[in-house]
Design a protein around this nucleic acid. Structure first.
Length: 496
RNA sequence: GGUCGCGUGGCCGAGUGGCUAGGCACAGCUCUGCAAAAGCUGCUACUGCGGUUCGAAUCCGCACGCGACCUCCA
C-alpha cells in the first residue's frame, strides 16, 4: 500500500499575516487556547461557527498525532455592558431581570452552551477554566504588571499603561494599529477620567456598591479586567509561551492585542507563537451578532421557527455547510445555501452507507491512495476543509461507480476507502451519520402527509362501499399508534 | 475618518501567474414499466479601467461596490 505523506501542516498566523509551517514548541505536545463564551445569554450560530473552526483544528492536530492540551475558557465574570448601563455588571443585570443569582445565570447558560456544543458534535476541551475560579491567578498577574511598572492604580482600579508599554514593545502588532492613529481616534469610555491615556485599559476595576460580582484585592473590592482572564489562565495551564491561540476575528482588537501586552508586561514573553482567527458568519452580508439582532439560536434553527428560516435544518447540515467554506473567509447564511448543503450531505452520507455493502469489482483499481493524499494536502494547507470536502465528493463518485459496477476496486481498496471516510469525514470533520436522523419538524411533516394519504385511500374504499378495506386501514393504523377520527368536516388523526 | 480584508459562473463557495475545484440548480444522455437514485455530458466564471508579463481571474495602480475592527458587543 502506498505511503501517504501526512505533513507538514501550514497555518495562517495572523500575527505575521502569512501561512507558516506549524512547529510546536515541545513536540509532540501542543498547547491550544481558544476564547470561550460569556455565559450571560444563549450562544447563536455565529458563535458556533467560531467554535467549530477550532474544533476542527483540535481534531486535525490530534489526527496528526500531536498530544494537544486544548483549553477553552468560560467567561463567568460579568463585565461592563455599555455606556447606557455604565458601571453595571453584565451578568448582574441579567440576574436582576430574571430574579436569579448571578451564578445561577452562569450555570444556566453554561449548561446551554454545553448542550449546543454536544448538538454540533464538538469535542470537549481538556480544560475548561472559569474566570471566577481563577481570581487569585488574575490578581497575581495584575501584581506582576504593576511591579514591572506597566500599570498604575487610580481610585481602586488598576490600568494598563499603554504608552509606557509602547515605548519598549510593539503594541498593536497583531491588529496592525499604531499608537498615534489610535490616539487620534478615541471615544469616551467608562473610567476615562482615571486613565492617564485614553488607550489605557482596566486590568482591575473597582466595583460600584450595587455590583453583585466582586472580590477583594489589594486595590479594592472589584473584578478583573476584560482581557485579563485569558492571559492568566492560558499562562497557568499552557505556560508563559504556548503554541496556538484562537478566537473570532472580532477579538483581534482590542482583546487579543491586550492579552499580548499583559503577558509581555507581566512575564516578559510574547505569549503566543501562532495566532489564528476565524471569520464571521454573516446574514444578508452583515455580521451575525447579538447587537444586530440577526442571530438565531440552535433551537430556532432546528425547528425553523424564526423569520429568517424557511425550514428547520439539522445540526449536521449546519456543520457541513460551515465546513464548505474556509474558516478565514466570511460566510453568508442563506436558506438556499443551507438547502444545497443539506442535499450534498445527504448524497455523501448515502454513499458512505453503501461502503458496507460494496462488492469488489475486478479490473484496474481506482486510486484511493492519491485521494487520501489529497485530503491530507488540503487539511495541511491551513485547514482547507472545503477542498477536503471536494475530494470526499470525488470519493462519493467512486463509491457510486463501483456500486454500479462501472468502476473497478478490490477489497483492499474498499477497506481503505472506508477507513478514509471514517477518519476524514467522521473523525476530522466531525460529521455524524444522519441516515434516518432528519430533524423532528421534518419528521412530523412527513408523518402527517403519510397519515393523510392513508385517510384518502380509506375514503376511496368507503366510497366504493369497500368497508372491509376501510376498516382494515383504520385498525392497522391504531395498532401503530395512530387514531383516526371521522368528523363532520372529514377525517382527522392523532396519536393514540 | 483610520486599519485590515473582500468582490469568482443561476446560487453557495475553493483556488491560482499558463493545467476541470466542489456542492446545489438547470439541460441532454445511460439505466429504467414510470419515477427516484446513480453515472456520463453540457452550461467553463473570475467588479471596471489601466499597467507588468511570452501569458493574469491570479502581481501592481486607480475607480466603484461591500464587510469587519477602531478599548471593554469574549
Amino acid at each position: 500500500m502506498a505511503e501517504v505523506k501526512k505533513g507538514p501542516l501550514f497555518i495562517t498566523n495572523t500575527l505575521t499575516r502569512r501561512k507558516e509551517e506549524f512547529i510546536p514548541l515541545n513536540p509532540p505536545h501542543v498547547g491550544l487556547y481558544v476564547c470561550g463564551p460569556t455565559v450571560y445569554s444563549d450562544v447563536h450560530l455565529g458563535n458556533v461557527r467560531s467554535f467549530i473552526t477550532f474544533d476542527i483544528l483540535y481534531r486535525w492536530l490530534s489526527h496528526l498525532g500531536y498530544n494537544v492540551r486544548y483549553v477553552r475558557n468560560i467567561t463567568d465574570v460579568g463585565h461592563l455592558v455599555d455606556d447606557v448601563d455604565a458601571g453595571e455588571d453584565k451578568i448582574a443585570k441579567r440576574a436582576r431581570l430574571e430574579q436569579l443569582e448571578p451564578m445561577e445565570i452562569v450555570q444556566k447558560y453554561t449548561n446551554g452552551f454545553h448542550d449546543v456544543m454536544r448538538l454540533f458534535n464538538l469535542r470537549n476541551p481538556n480544560i475548561e477554566p472559569t474566570a471566577t475560579a481563577h481570581l487569585i491567578d488574575q490578581i497575581g498577574m495584575v501584581e506582576r504588571i504593576v511591579k514591572n511598572g506597566y500599570a498604575y492604580e487610580a481610585n481602586g482600579s488598576v490600568y494598563f499603561d499603554v504608552p509606557k508599554y509602547a515605548e519598549k514593545f510593539a503594541y498593536g502588532e497583531l491588529s496592525g494599529r499604531k499608537i498615534d492613529e489610535l490616539l487620534s481616534n478615541t471615544r469616551d469610555t467608562e473610567g476615562m477620567e482615571e486613565k492617564r491615556s485614553p488607550l489605557d485599559f482596566a486590568i482591575w476595576k473597582k466595583a460600584d456598591p450595587h455590583h453583585l460580582m466582586k472580590w477583594p484585592s489589594p486595590w479594592s473590592e472589584g473584578f478583573p479586567g476584560w482581557h485579563l482572564e485569558c492571559s492568566a489562565m492560558s499562562t497557568k495551564y499552557l505556560g508563559q509561551t504556548f503554541d496556538i491561540h484562537g478566537g473570532g476575528m472580532d477579538l483581534k482588537f482590542p482583546h487579543h492585542e491586550c492579552e499580548i501586552a499583559q503577558s509581555v508586561a507581566a512575564d516578559g514573553h510574547a505569549p503566543v507563537r501562532y495566532w489564528m482567527h476565524g471569520n464571521m458568519l454573516t446574514v444578508n452580508g452583515r455580521k451575525m451578532a447579538k447587537s444586530e439582532g440577526n442571530g438565531f439560536t440552535p433551537e430556532e434553527l432546528l425547528t425553523g421557527n424564526h423569520k429568517l428560516l424557511e425550514k428547520g435544518y439539522s445540526a449536521m447540515t449546519v456543520r457541513f455547510f460551515m465546513l464548505q467554506c474556509h474558516y478565514a473567509s466570511t460566510l453568508d447564511f442563506s436558506n438556499a445555501a443551507m438547502q444545497a448543503a443539506e442535499k450534498g450531505l445527504e448524497r455523501m452520507m448515502k454513499a458512505v452507507a453503501l461502503l458496507d455493502s460494496l462488492k469488489p469489482v475486478p479490473g484496474e483499481v481506482a486510486d484511493v491512495a492519491s485521494l487520501e493524499e489529497r485530503c491530507y494536502a488540503a487539511m495541511n494547507d491551513d485547514m482547507n476543509t472545503p477542498v477536503m470536502i471536494a475530494e470526499l465528493f470525488e470519493g462519493v463518485r467512486i463509491i457510486n461507480s463501483v456500486n454500479d459496477g462501472n468502476m473497478a476496486m478490490d477489497a483492499q481498496g474498499i477497506a481503505r476507502l472506508k477507513g478514509l471516510f471514517h477518519s476524514m469525514l467522521f473523525d476530522v470533520l466531525g460529521i455524524q451519520s444522519t441516515i434516518g436522523a432528519t430533524n423532528g419538524a421534518n419528521d412530523e411533516t412527513a408523518l402527517d402527509g403519510l397519515v393523510k394519504e392513508f385517510i384518502r385511500m380509506r375514503a376511496e374504499a368507503k366510497a366504493k362501499k369497500d368497508f372491509a378495506t376501510g376498516d382494515a386501514i383504520r385498525d392497522r393504523l391504531v395498532a401503530l399508534g395512530i387514531l383516526l377520527k371521522d368528523t363532520k368536516e372529514g377525517t382527522t388523526w392523532e396519536r393514540a
